[in-house]
């Protein structure tokens, strides 16, 4: 009969014995864990949005949906334009009908299920448009929460999603403070703006930048000090969205006000 003492002794011995080869099989390698950015990449993509220039035409959204094969009539989009209307009574009205795919062709605010809110022109204190897209954060919370390694950041700073690896848990959709992630209605995987990675890696510009007739959207490389976008970010008054979240967003805005969330 085996005694309790000898059973415990032997099981600890055997468990310890099998633990050694398990570690050797590299489930988690502490060296790799510690190894971070080895040698900075020469490219780090950033984006610059000038809200003074945006007129809310929505050509960026239209082009993005077609270029990136987001079903045109599905109510999801990688980028969108928000309209902010601040009225005299101090209220802030925000809308983005169909992600502004067809622009803003009404003075009324689209309140969704609550219907359209008519606003008289005389009641407007200020009104403007703010384009939104993925911030390609330096500390992307959407990547941290992915349990399977389906979403990741490339060496040039763009956060991508591996459609074949995504299990559709939706953690990343919840984790993004900017609400840029959604499920692709066809591929059933998490989807997001990636600065048109297929275009920027070929030396082209993202399609929203090309489609904008007003120069409200620009892309640049923050590691290149001579890049015109880098110069603006370094020398002019720019701001980012939700800095307090510590995500280090890399989409910079000219002309943000406190109403913009």
């Amino acid at each position: 009969m085996i005694s309790r003492r000898s059973f415990c002794k032997k099981s600890i011995l055997i468990l310890g014995g099998i633990a050694v080869p398990l570690a050797a099989l590299e489930l988690f390698d502490p060296k790799k864990l510690a190894a971070d950015r080895s040698g900075p990449s020469t490219v780090r993509w950033v984006f610059l949005v000038d809200t003074h220039k945006c007129v809310g035409c929505g050509f960026c959204v239209k082009a993005c949906k077609i270029e990136n094969e987001i079903p045109y009539d599905a109510n999801v989009s990688r980028t969108w334009v928000e309209r902010y209307v601040v009225t005299r009574d101090g209220k802030v009205h925000i809308d983005s009908p169909k992600a502004a795919r067809d622009g803003f062709t009404s003075t009324s605010i689209d309140q969704g299920a609550l219907g359209m809110l008519k606003i008289e022109n005389n009641d407007i204190d200020k009104a403007f448009f703010v384009p939104k897209l993925c911030n390609q954060c330096d500390n992307p919370p959407c990547v941290q929460v992915c349990p399977v390694g389906a979403t990741y950041q490339t060496s040039d700073g763009v956060v991508l999603v591996d459609r074949s690896w995504c299990i559709g848990c939706g953690y990343c959709v919840m984790a993004c403070p900017y609400g840029v992630r959604f499920f692709h209605p066809v591929y059933h995987a998490a989807e997001k703006c990636n600065f048109c990675y297929h275009r920027i890696s070929k030396g082209m510009k993202p399609v929203c930048v090309e489609a904008c007739p007003f120069g409200a959207r620009r892309i640049g490389n923050i590691r290149d000090p001579d890049d015109p976008v880098t110069r603006i970010i370094m020398t002019e008054r720019v701001n980012v969205l939700k800095e307090e979240y510590g995500t280090k967003p890399q989409v910079f805005y000219v002309g943000l006000t406190r109403e913009v969330k």
């Binding site: 790799k32 864990l33 190894a35 971070d36 950015r37 080895s38 990449s41 082009a63 077609i66 270029e67 990136n68 992307p140 990547v143 941290q144 390694g149 389906a150 979403t151 990741y152 950041q153 490339t154 060496s155 991508l160 591996d162 074949s164 690896w165 990636n194 990675y197 297929h198 275009r199 890696s201 070929k202 082209m204 399609v207 090309e210 489609a211």
Partner: peptide, 29 residues
């Protein structure tokens, strides 16, 4: 495995970067 951005942000399938680069360009400007 772990790529350039380290374990926290770079844990992924390297081949997927090429998949995204190979998406067809539709707007030719």
């Amino acid at each position: 495995g772990v790529q350039e951005r380290g374990y926290m942000y770079g844990w992924h399938r390297k081949g997927n970067e090429a998949d995204w680069k190979n998406v067809r360009v539709k707007y030719r400007t």
